[in-house]
Design a protein around this nucleic acid. Structure first.
Lengths: 285, 285
DNA sequence: GGTGGCGATAACCTGGAGGCATGACTGATC
DNA sequence: GATCAGTCATGCCTCCAGGTTATCGCCACC
């Protein structure tokens, strides 16, 4: 069997992210030649070149693209296996819920209250994730359930149920030309500066303006007139003074979803999902 | 990060299957002490015992059960990543279809003919799998698409479309007390001897009688009056002389499904699925 | 109490992963 | 076009993880 150690896979993924041997090696806390050798080793073992390198440039071959894609899943799976093993059998383990700070649309306390009344309720650890990796917390077992936003978060490999649907609003300074409108279309926003989101490859889809790290930063930038934003309404309620929120009518609605790993079968999770949905029966998945 | 090398994971899985250090080590082509050390190493690294061992007996702890479950997926994912990388970019690679011998309900030639007319049709390699692991061929990338039977095969992690639904028939020797009936219920078969299927843990659900390896063997056993069987009709058409097939009306129907790895996006696969379903558009997944 | 099966331990060996120093290539600069 | 800076590859050395064989200790079973 053509084997590939997780160590090597991790090296590969890191290099595929950085596209720079020196930086990747630093991130991995090894010396650069070691990484060079490891990658070459993997390439010969698989019989396929993964990178085209010149002394000025590193890029992925198609095979490398494929390995990056699937290798990420594989690493997640290994991580998930380890974490599940470590927590298994520990009947008093807590339930870990991951969400984005402020990203609960006000539903969290209700959910927790309902869950607490379940006969088999556990303590709940609430984890706040970085900007873009909530889903990965679920995929690699760092969390059991999560509150995610569709269609922003990638729900691949996860089961989910929608908790709440809402339209999105354009956030504008009060003096903006569109601030008086009852609603706008995306085309009305043509030419406006939209943010790039820090840590999200591609900046979250829409923007090409300055980078922002969170909603607070974004609102500040909008207040000073440097950009505008388009967000699910609940993320910015209540709206700070000096800003207006105008519904955007032609954008797909944003959904707050409760998500958990596909194939998850532990009652621990099923019970929470049931409570969160306010149903009497276990959800299908 | 608490890491776990694929090598170690493979050792663990093998031992979890065998529950015997000597045999597992032999299967892995290493010496027994090496396996002992490797497993102990993993246990200390994860901080969780995976096996309870006496000098007479080895069994899994709950943590071990969890790691066995999820670890298998992880190994599949690594295998899939490797295979995808090796085949990526090779525009002339063939499409690999896995099925059980005879398990196509007569649909295969039609499917292949339709596929051959697709503008981007490739050569098709047909793989015949062992009794129970067709789905694994898809999960770890050894095949691109497969013909599986629901609800027999485990479709977890796979996308699928139903090609054909059929009832199941009880296969009886002509002289059997029920051979004249127009239909039977499962309860009518109470007390009959049903086969265990070789290579399928649990024997495939129903039986506890002698072990059989394939349909031909089963039919032989039925002919000589040693057992009866319950199978999807197409698997036993045409019926050999001396046997009768009586529809079983209260069992969920058997479905022949076309399956492929979830998240699969290559046109190679989409194109085949489209052709097999005889549609004009790509299937959703 | 002897025996055989099985897992753990001990002692040793070795391939290869990783570190350091340096070479080789290349695009940029003046 | 010579020089330089940045970047990846190579050569050589070290050291340990993971392998081997031999042996022990435990237990079940005659």
């Amino acid at each position: 069997m053509t084997d590939l150690e997780t160590r090597e896979l991790e090296y590969f993924i890191t290099l595929a992210d950085e596209l720079h041997f020196g930086r990747a090696a630093a991130r991995l806390s090894i010396a650069q030649p070691a990484l060079s050798k490891a990658i070459r080793r993997v390439e010969t073992r698989l019989g396929v070149p993964l990178f085209v390198r010149s002394s000025r440039h590193v890029e992925l071959t198609p095979a490398g693209e494929a390995l990056r894609e699937h290798g990420r899943h594989a690493l997640n799976a290994v991580g998930a296996a380890v974490r599940h093993a470590q927590r298994a059998g520990d009947a008093r383990s807590r339930l870990r819920l991951v969400l984005k700070p402020g990203g609960d649309a006000g539903l969290l306390s209700g959910i927790l209250a309902r869950y607490a009344q379940q006969p088999d309720a556990r303590q709940v650890d609430i984890l706040f994730s970085g900007p873009a990796d909530r889903a990965d917390f679920l995929r690699d077992g760092r969390a059991d359930v999560g509150l995610l936003y569709a269609p922003f978060d990638d729900l691949g490999g996860l089961a989910h149920e929608t908790l709440h649907t809402e339209d999105r609003v354009a956030i504008l300074p009060s003096g903006h030309r569109l601030a008086g409108r009852a609603s706008v279309l995306m085309s009305d926003l043509e030419g406006e500066t939209l943010p790039r989101w820090k840590g999200i490859p591609g900046g979250g889809g829409d923007g090409d303006g300055p980078e922002v790290a969170d909603v607070v930063q974004l609102l500040q930038m909008i207040t000073v007139g440097r950009m505008i934003g388009v967000l699910p309404r609940s993320l910015v309620e209540p709206l700070p003074p000096g800003l207006r929120g105008v519904p955007v009518t032609d954008t797909p609605p944003s959904r707050l979803v409760l998500a958990w790993p596909e194939h998850e079968r532990r009652p621990l999770v099923a019970s929470f999902v049931t409570a969160a949905l306010g149903r009497d029966e276990a959800p299908h998945d």
